[in-house]
Design a protein around this nucleic acid. Structure first.
Lengths: 109, 109
DNA sequence: CTAGAGTGCAACCGGGTGGTTGCACCATGT
DNA sequence: ACATGGTGCAACCACCCGGTTGCACTCTAG
């Protein structure tokens, strides 16, 4: 539908990959890192990490900043909150639905 | 790594698809539905919906129950809460990191 | 100025994924 | 009994995705 929904999908599909989740965890502890630094701690090539960082960037979860000859990536947790909000909304809607149903059952009894 | 992490990945990759998110939304309003019912409201074939429901099931987000000749699917919001928890954890970690950094800056001043 | 570190770009590959179609297999209602 | 509506199974397809390799580019350090 809207652009908001596409962003939501980007966040979830970014979070779907375990390597990407590990990268996010690392950036949460370490405030900023380069692709090569991150690649050193992961079992895959630097290029693979670069691609992962790109999809994280497209999801708005990470922000690259050039510093001389290197590019440092920092976490941007805002879209995380949005996505978490969507999930709890669905859960809450379901709960309300259950409550309404319970009410009807008691009334009908 | 652990099984918990694989489950987390399953939830996120299930949530990554817009059709699947719509199905969840539908089941949040409607407590239960069959694959053919859901397919009627979506622009794809029933078989496609069945596959989507299977991945939702593997993520633990939905539970099938046979009722005579039809199979009704109901929402199971628990894994949603888990995933949301993971996200807010990462965000909180980031916030703590920021606070610590700010503290150091003031102390060093 | 030049060697080397860090990055960017492009091609390529195998496997997974969303989607389709066709058909066989139950249950149920008349 | 049997036609029918709802499922399940399998093959097939195009495309995406995670990963690799090779090489060109750019900035810094000495």
């Amino acid at each position: 539908m809207n652009a908001h929904d596409r962003r939501l999908g980007a966040v979830f599909s970014a979070l779907a990959d375990p390597t990407r989740r590990r990268l996010l965890g690392r950036l949460a502890e370490q405030q900023s890192a380069t692709a090569t630094e991150l690649a050193a701690a992961e079992p895959v090539s630097r290029q693979a990490i670069v691609k992962h960082l790109q999809s994280l960037d497209e999801a708005g979860l990470v922000t690259p900043a050039r510093a001389g000859r290197e590019v440092r990536y920092a976490l941007t947790p805002a879209p995380l909150e949005d996505a978490a909000g969507w999930m709890t909304t669905v859960g809450a809607q379901w709960d309300r639905r259950l409550a309404r149903l319970r009410g009807k059952l008691e009334a009908g009894k």
